[in-house]
């Protein structure tokens, strides 16, 4: 019995090592999202290209969206990673994925120029110069992408660039499943 007790420190060391090793892969920048499976927050903000038009949370409640499954992409012209992400979003839009832009703490003219130069993958772009909707969404860095289902419930959130790898890994299956559900109703 006493001899076995001598192994306790070794076992503790191995357990600690295993715990630390398993933590190596974790991204410390990643926050657990508080909004997944919550409804998209209420808001009323101007459209980027059409200041007369007020975009609101009603646009996510199956009325103007026709019960569409949408991606909401938070971007800004000051955000370097958004430049890398943009071509991939253009590609997704061509494949028929509905994307709504949220222009976050930006300048309207610069943002319009950006879309004119790089192509506009967004069905519409919410203009949020103060970052108020950003705070309601818990945005802490651009780019961020939310998958919102036909009922306006946030189903997935990705902080950082969405590229082909991330799309296939995190979004594709869930997106297809949600689209199928929406068309079945």
């Amino acid at each position: 019995m006493n001899r076995l007790a001598l192994f306790i420190p070794l076992i503790l060391c191995i357990a600690l090592g295993a715990f630390l090793f398993s933590s190596l892969d974790k991204d410390p920048q990643e926050l657990p999202s508080a909004l997944v499976s919550q409804p998209f927050p209420n808001f009323a903000l101007e459209e980027l290209n059409d200041p007369e038009r007020l975009v609101s949370s009603a646009d996510f409640r199956g009325e103007s969206q026709n019960g569409q499954v949408v991606l909401v992409n938070i971007w800004a012209t000051w955000c370097f990673a958004c430049r890398i992400e943009h071509p991939y979003l253009n590609g997704l839009a061509e494949q028929g994925v509905a994307i709504i832009g949220l222009n976050y703490k930006d300048n309207r003219l610069l943002a319009q120029q950006w879309l004119a130069e790089r192509g506009d993958p967004y069905q519409m772009t919410i203009f949020d110069p103060q970052g108020t909707l950003g705070i309601d969404l818990g945005v802490y860095g651009a780019p961020e992408t939310y998958l919102v289902d036909a009922q306006g419930i946030i189903r997935h959130r990705r902080v950082g660039v969405v590229d082909e790898r991330i799309w296939n890994k995190e979004f594709r299956d869930l997106y297809n499943q949600l689209v199928e559900q929406a068309s079945g109703e």
């Binding site: 926050l31 657990p32 999202s33 508080a34 909004l35 705070i135 309601d136 969404l137 818990g138 802490y140």
Partner: peptide, 8 residues
């Protein structure tokens, strides 16, 4: 704030 940014 936690309802938006989680317990983090």
């Amino acid at each position: 704030l936690t309802s938006r940014y989680s317990d983090f």
